[in-house]
Amino acid sequence: MQKTWSAGPGRLTVREGDITRLDVDAIVNAANSRLAGGGGVDGAIHRAAGIDKLQAACREIIREIGSLPPGETVLTPGFNLPASHVIHTVGPIWHGGKDNEPALLSNAYMNSLRLAQQHDIRTVAFPAISCGVYGYPVEDAARIALSTLKKGLESGLVSEAVMVLHGETAFNTWSRIAEDIL
């Protein structure tokens, strides 16, 4: 399942599938602040990239910066992934919207696009950042994510952004919201 919309000079695709199998320039990892791997999409990306290689690259970054704050991004090679690069970003943990969560979530998407542009990355696939164990309400997260991606595409930061969702329910929700925004 897949749907695509134009956004400025670029395009936005919403699809159901496995982000680790996409042939794009970069995939975004919904990481934790220590870049330590974990469950969900983070664990799947580490396994597909090669746990030892990706964790070594992440540990080197953490040695330099200490931790990655919500909304910020770093880049590693993709190692065994079809994607050449992994953009790691930390989404906010949902606390009812009282802790600047919408701005932090928007920053996670926009800063991923900006980092991609800095490294001449043209196609980027995103998971639904913060929608798993971080508890962000899916419809709110979708509106923020898709609006932010639309702005980035209209600005020419990348040529294609792909939202990769797990399951038909998530695909249908994000597609419906994309229809409203795009």
Rank of each mutant, 00 (worst) to 15 (best):
R34W: 12
D25C: 02
I27R: 03
R34N: 12
G97H: 12
R114W: 15
K98E: 15
V28W: 13
Q118N: 08
V90Q: 07
T76S: 05
I65A: 09
I87M: 04
N107W: 14
E16S: 11
L81C: 10
V28N: 03
N80P: 01
T20L: 05
L75G: 04
A26Y: 15
R34P: 00
R15I: 01
S112Q: 11
G78Q: 03
A44H: 11
I93G: 02
G43E: 14
L75E: 02
R15T: 15
Q117G: 05
A103H: 14
R114V: 15
P92Q: 06
D52G: 06
K53H: 14
K3H: 11
G71W: 15
L22C: 04
Q2A: 09
D25N: 11
R63C: 03
L105D: 10
S33Q: 11
D52R: 10
N80H: 13
G91A: 02
V86L: 03
R34F: 14
H95L: 11
L81T: 02
T4L: 01
A44S: 13
V86F: 12
I19C: 02
G66L: 09
A48S: 14
I19D: 04
V14P: 01
V41G: 04
E101K: 03
R47D: 15
R63W: 12
A56L: 07
I45Q: 01
G78Y: 03
T76V: 08
R114L: 13
G78P: 04
I87G: 01
A30E: 11
G66K: 03
A30Q: 10
I61N: 06
E64N: 08
L105H: 14
N32D: 14
P102H: 03
L105C: 10
A7G: 06
T76N: 05
P70I: 09
P9V: 13
P77K: 07
T89K: 05
A7D: 10
L105G: 06
A48F: 13
G38A: 10
L68R: 09
N100T: 06
D25Y: 00
I65L: 07
Y109A: 02
L104A: 03
P102Q: 04
R59N: 13
A116T: 10
D99S: 07
R21V: 00
E72L: 01
R11C: 10
V90K: 00
A7C: 14
H95K: 13
N80A: 11
I61L: 07
G97S: 06
D42N: 07
R34G: 01
E64C: 02
A7Q: 06
T13I: 09
S6D: 10
L113R: 05
G71R: 07
Q2H: 13
N80V: 00
Q2I: 09
H46C: 08
E72R: 08
A103P: 00
A30G: 11
L115T: 08
D99M: 13
D25F: 00
Q55N: 13
T89H: 11
G39Q: 01
K98L: 12
Q55K: 11
K98C: 08
I61G: 04
R21H: 13
P92H: 08
A26Q: 07
R34I: 00
I19H: 08
M110Q: 04
I62N: 06
G91S: 06
R21F: 00
